[in-house]
Design a protein around this nucleic acid. Sequence first.
RNA 1: GUGACCGUAGUUCAAUGGUAGAGCCCCAGAUUGUGGUUCUGGUUGUUGCGGGUUCGAGUCCCGUCGGUCACCCCA
Length: 418
Amino acid sequence: MQRLPGFRDFYPEPLPTSDVWSADARTWIFSRWRETARRYGFREYDGPPLEPLELFTLKSGEEIVGQLYNFTDKGEREVAMRPEMTPTLARLVSDAQRHYKKPFKWFAIPQLFRYEKQQKGRLREHFQFNADIIGESNPGIDAELIALVIDSLRATGLTADDFVIRLSSRNAWQQFFEQAGGKPENAYAFYQAVDKLEREQPDVSAKKFADVGVQIDSVNQFIESGQPTEELQSVIEQLTARGLGEFVKIDYHIIRGLAYYTGVVFEAFDRKGEFRAIAGGGRYDNLVKLISGGKVDLPAIGFGMGDVVLTNLLQERGKLPEFTAGIDVYMLIEDESLRGESLKVIQQLRESGKAIEFSTGPLKSDKQFKRALELKSKFMVRVEKSADGALVCRCKNLQTRDEKTVPATELETWASGW
RNA sequence: GUGACCGUAGUUCAAUGGUAGAGCCCCAGAUUGUGGUUCUGGUUGUUGCGGGUUCGAGUCCCGUCGGUCACCCCA
């Protein structure tokens, strides 16, 4: 039985085949994300993976249904697997925001689903680190959130040589569009054209811009100038003050496709440009109001960082650590008459927090030894009876091959030293 | 949803239209005996699936499923 297309199986390392994913790497990345979010004072939240279809069509229109995993449930409800976290977050916020002092900083690591044909860096399911700051509009918040993006990536071992945040602003583009004489009703079409500028033939783009009353030359000129607006200048200054200046650059190519962004927008890319965007986000000051049906009106900024592109990048750059079972001791049981005594020692070590592995049935000692080496166990321990009948443990450091004999009663004390 | 390329053992790959193979992995035995080495043997296939052409198809054709990449769209 095959797994569904675009979905992943996660295995313990070492991986059996090249088409499956590492559960160890996933856990490791999630830990880096959580640990960084904690350092920034973010709190974790979550919601259901299955939501009313309406939650998503409300924000994105009926067009999005074609890209959703949706169906009618047994209670005749129209439902969908969540394709993004923001609508769920907006619901949580509109339901309970009064209980939280503003601004509040929340993050989640939801599994998201999208009914699309898979391609590089893009599957039908992925995990996404989502972090949002709700209820504050000063640019210091924008800088704080972008700093979190940077440090989340740095926590995985990536450096300024590996990635960069391309920083832009809907406000900057809005100003440009107005000064160029664009009409408000054409603003979205204009943003779409800017979003596609890098991927499309120049003459196609030129026509799109002409259709909304803008010269493509002036668009290119604006991008090339890269002059930060006051708002962006403030963000850059605050990141520079943190020593993170080298991780960002003004890049007006970035505008983000979604209609709801209102201010600062940004995307993180690998420096070599081999991958899709690693992360993306921006300000959405009107979305909470929209989702809550006008009940709550709070400014917000957030980003999403998927595990697929990030894992690919870390793999490619050799930044993922070596994952093992993390075994501290392999207990060698050569003499079956000592199995009971060995089990006692195993239990003691486990209760003291050590990771122990052993053969639960009789096995030739060289097999046990090989197993210990395969597991990359730090030590191999063997319980023996000394000449005077006392139980002793022969402990071998498998890295240095040093051997040491300690009384069984003192093994735990000895073990606490490493 | 559209298009291009690709599907052979658990895995990495061979095999002019003419007997489906090798390395690795795994298992067993021996060797080694302060052990990680080495040797011997063994298991494994509806050649993704279904049709067609042919005396004969892994190979050619059609369909289908899956994979990769691009488009569409964007989290």
